[in-house]
Design a protein around this nucleic acid. Structure first.
Lengths: 204, 204
DNA sequence: AAAAAACTTTTATGTGACTAAAAATTCATA
DNA sequence: TATGAATTTTTAGTCACATAAAAGTTTTTT
């Protein structure tokens, strides 16, 4: 049984995150202040600080809230894994992009990424890094399934492959959110070109 | 002939950047204020703002100062290109890392990267992105030389390969500066594993 | 129902980024 | 060498992040 106090805390937590998200999407990071978030969430600004420490801490906490949803979506992909590395990579990346844009705007994602770099070893920064590791792990798992069907060479270290393809995906994701007119389809083309170039590079 | 006024401006510009660099390296980004930089550079704080706009603008301007040196170093690598993709990639990345650490600390580089993401389309942000493009271009050129000696498959798009290997390098560089105890050698091992996994992945 | 514990709010304060405008200085020029 | 132009400095102020401590409120415990 959760007592009243805990439920109140949870409720405030939720209201703060919801207010934050609304304002971030509507007005961007700079224009969203702790003060206005607190107001909409019907708490004092100091409470927001007590809960999340800093403005960027709040931002990263907000993102980590959506982690479980993303991991679930990825789980679905694992259940129906594609037939080639190319398709795997493309599908994996698309799940991430779609989830990202369903949750926040490109402009806010830039702030998220910047914050995760700077606050890398704060409480919420760590949970962001944790998600990255889990995603890379999932990609590796999908590649393992693919190998069972002969889609990946037998003597490739899939932990390494999964990790470094994830890094590449991340880099392209950053380009995606850094340019307001880069479409989903455009990134997909890039990623397919990337895979093709990488897999064909070995001489002989 | 440059008149006195222009020379003074240039001198102030230099002194500001020098003071900024000294303090950033010694005390980090947060502890370095425009005020203390201005003091050491013997100008007023307002002048610093007139020259560089914002604190992160100053940071990116400082970095772009070192661009020409890095590109020169890379030029040397192009003159003596390695014999395999693996060695090429490893050497390319090492030039960047060495140059980076000879100029600023890991902690400051995190701020630089974060700033470049957020201020992507400001004056100095653009020049940072420009450097990235040139570096990717140089990697492509080295790969072209490598192909002449049979080190890369004939039907690979080297523009794409250069670009996406550069992205991967960037991702690993970020990991490097994000962890204070990650050594140069450790990154090198990672990069070699990456290349090996990628080039071996194609089935058949 | 009173006392204690756990929070939240209020209040006060500091700091540093950033800006606008007036005043002062220095260089260029006639 | 006086006048005008360019630039810097001074001054004054705003804004938002962040923190500390006191005061107030609500839940929990006894």
């Amino acid at each position: 049984m959760t007592n009243l106090r805990e439920r109140q805390k949870e409720s405030r937590r939720r209201k703060i995150l919801q207010a934050a998200r609304e304002q971030l999407v509507a007005n961007g990071f700079e224009a969203t202040t702790i003060e206005t978030i607190a107001e909409e969430a019907e708490v004092s600004a100091v409470t927001v600080y007590n809960y999340y420490g800093t403005k960027t801490g709040l931002l990263l906490a907000l993102v980590s809230e959506s982690d479980s949803i993303l991991l679930e979506r990825m789980q679905e992909l694992l259940k129906a894994p594609p037939d080639t590395i190319e398709e795997t990579f493309s599908a994996f990346a698309e799940v991430i992009r779609r989830h990202a844009l369903s949750f926040l705007t490109k402009a806010v994602w830039r702030q998220v990424i910047a914050a995760s770099i700077i606050e890398g070893d704060s409480q919420f920064g760590r949970s962001y890094a944790q998600l990255d590791r889990e995603l890379a792990r999932q990609l590796t798992k999908i590649l393992e399934k693919l190998r069972e069907r002969g889609g990946v060479s037998a003597n490739t270290d899939l932990d390494v492959l999964g990790d470094c393809l994830f890094q590449l995906q991340n880099a392209r994701f950053l380009q995606f959110v850094s340019s307001n007119d880069m479409t989903n389809e455009a990134v997909d083309r890039y990623l397919r070109e990337d895979i093709e170039a990488l897999l064909s590079a070995y001489p002989g």
